[in-house]
Design a protein around this nucleic acid. Sequence first.
RNA 1: GGUGAGAUACUCAAGUGGCCAACGAGGGCAGACUGUAAAUCUGCUGAUUUUUAUCUUCGAAGGUUCGAAUCCUUCUCUCACCA
Length: 408
Amino acid sequence: MTNEALNDKTVNVLKEIFRGCAETIDDARFFSLVKTYFEKGETYTVKAGFDPTAPDLHLGHTVLLHKLATFQKYGGRVQFLIGDFTAQIGDPTGKSETRKKLLPTQIEENAKSYKEQVFKVLDPDKTTVVFNSEWINPLGAAGMLELTTTFNVARMLERDDFDKRHKAGISISISEFLYPLLQGYDSVHLKSDIEIGGTDQKFNLLMGRHLQRAYQVGKEQAVMMMPILEGLDGVQKMSKSLGNYIAVADEPNEMFGKILSISDTLMWRYYELLSSQSLDEIEALKAGVENGSLHPKKVKESLALEITERFHSRDAALGAQAEFERVHAQSEIPSEMDEFSADAPIWIAKALVDCLLSPSTSQARREIKQGSVKIDQNKLNDEQYQLEAGEYILQVGKRKFARLKVTQ
RNA sequence: GGUGAGAUACUCAAGUGGCCAACGAGGGCAGACUGUAAAUCUGCUGAUUUUUAUCUUCGAAGGUUCGAAUCCUUCUCUCACCA
């Protein structure tokens, strides 16, 4: 291949690699890494850090994972870093206070669960899972001290959220300063060529470059930042603690339903960051909705199908769609639901709690009063209702169902 | 180290002796309308089959009082100013 053809090929691949990302630093480096791979087959390393406290991956994480998978297609070897040491500090980005220390067994368990989920997207043969306590613990006080000499407070305060908090008079713990330093040091130890992370990680990602220079690693990592995916509410970032997430491990029906419940505005955001459809195709869909030739719900459905298929299977996705249609469009009961049993007679409010449909009998009574409880598809008005022996289908609101067998 | 201010439910925030399970806003849940979208309207949002009732809750522990989120004491934490 001529040098010119090689350049063209690299440029095209970079387009795919850069798709959807918010910002990159050191584009020339990306170019040369990919080009060298095509030229000589030399691979390069792409680092991404994850928190060991949240082994339940959600779609927000997959934005990053898909990007990593793209790199793997073009010579990237992924350094999947589990920040078991840094988790003890807590990244200052959030409101998070000092976190409790995780037991080694917990971390191990979480890591295992990570692997199961991550390899639905990543190629295991091109992925190395590493823990940063492995090289941070041996640093000791001396190493840590040395690390702190590479940076100063003024520059640390340039970090956006430190700056804001400092100006607003909100406390910043000294230990929080260590977080970016340690994250950067990870890149020194791993000699990463590229690091990717969320846009909120900009400062930390750049720290990797700074420290690689300070420690004379001989190269400075290129950086790619991905936008933060909003959660189901469309406002706050998708996170487990906010409860607005779609987990990778969600059942097909649930995953499909959750995607369909997002707002029309948010749908386009998900298309941009999660869909494999090209940007042109997405533009066409947008135009279709705007001129009325496409119903927004249909467009949302095809997104839900695509994503559900990705984490389950084509059949599961189609099944979920059919099920959804049955339950919501035709208000029939779901084909599968949790089953419970109880002794007759049982008070309805109690039954709802036992079937995990309501958190408390008080809540259950309120729900009955408001007319959101149905037994076998019929609305229930009597909050004193007693269930005799038999089989019932209990429903609270539109989404919560359970089958209850009452025996004498 | 000194002085001052503060800590109320998921969040913000009112309440300064009984009318307080605690105003209001946001959030959440539910109902109507819909496409399980958005917008809008309405209701609910500590627990308990004593349900015009009882119990627990206003940073923690004690105390005063017939009665405390409200008053007193000690403690813990947060913030501001000074050093």
